[in-house]
């Protein structure tokens, strides 16, 4: 099996400060890679570089063997709305708040050329059902949805074109635990069902434990530990990882 994403020596600096540096990893289809670390550790910078929102200063990102740095912008934008998905921490950043839920889900379909209203609507209804939103609310604006529903709507909107690579920036941040649990169940099911390659940035170790197959721990812009999730969380080697794991409150 060939890697979906190969990252080699990625570096992003903000002037003299390091955003992230020396990051290398491979991601395979059907695999969930968690990135954990405290705030300011470079997780979001790394994700933004991978998504093409920020230009990396050095290093290479290969998506299915093609160098993203050498790719022309039109091609990158086509990939961004077909094969990639980006789930923002705040659903307001990822949703179009002024149009209905159906239009939000349909937007990517229309962007790739769907021109049959009935078919677009049917796809939108199907996806609302899959993320457990009542299809009867298809014509409601996202404003009328709760935070958890908005986040699920954002996920539906991103997955409707069946992407291969999904980048998530703290998708469960700001949700209460029971909503979080349902969202995680949903994500797990979708990942298995669709064979997605997922990179999920989180500072919640429980989320990482539940979702991620592999884990990278970041501190000060560097990856200090990487390995299988259970291995990293149960037998942390780096001093910082030990601190991170032991800081979790036990209920």
């Amino acid at each position: 099996m060939s890697a979906l994403l190969q990252v080699e020596g990625l570096e992003k600096r903000y002037g003299a400060r390091i955003g992230c540096t020396g990051v290398s990893f491979d991601l395979f289809p059907g695999e969930v890679l968690g990135i954990v670390g405290e705030s300011g550790s470079g997780k979001s910078t790394l994700l933004a570089c991978l998504a093409g929102h920020l230009a990396a200063d050095s290093g290479q990102i290969l998506y299915r063997g093609r160098d993203l740095g050498a790719m022309a912008e039109p091609e990158r934008r086509v990939l961004a709305r077909t094969e990639w998905a980006f789930v923002h921490q705040n659903p307001r950043d990822g949703l179009r708040m002024g149009v209905s839920a159906g239009a939000n889900v349909g937007e990517r379909l229309m962007a790739v050329g769907a021109r049959h209203y009935g078919a677009i609507r049917a796809a939108a209804e199907d996806w609302l059902g899959r993320v457990e939103i009542d299809p009867g609310r298809i014509d409601d604006r996202p404003r009328a949805f709760s935070g958890g529903m908005q986040q699920r709507l954002q996920i539906a909107r991103n997955l409707v074109t069946a992407p291969r690579l999904v980048l998530m920036d703290e998708p469960t941040g700001g949700l209460d635990v029971s909503v979080q649990a349902r969202l995680l169940d949903l994500l797990r099911a979708l990942v298995r069902e669709m064979g997605l390659g997922v990179i999920i940035v989180t500072h919640d170790l429980a989320v990482a434990r539940l979702l991620a197959d592999r884990l990278m721990v970041m501190k000060d812009g560097r990856v200090i530990e990487a390995g299988l999730t259970d291995q990293v969380l149960d037998d942390p080697q780096a001093a910082y990882t030990q601190l991170l794991v032991s800081s979790v409150l036990q209920v």
Partner: peptide, 18 residues
């Protein structure tokens, strides 16, 4: 420049939905 006109149809979709 990139002929990304899907958004125009989002507006028309919204018209029909409403």
């Amino acid at each position: 420049a990139l002929e990304e006109y899907g958004l125009m149809h989002v507006k028309l979709y919204e018209d029909i939905a409403r």
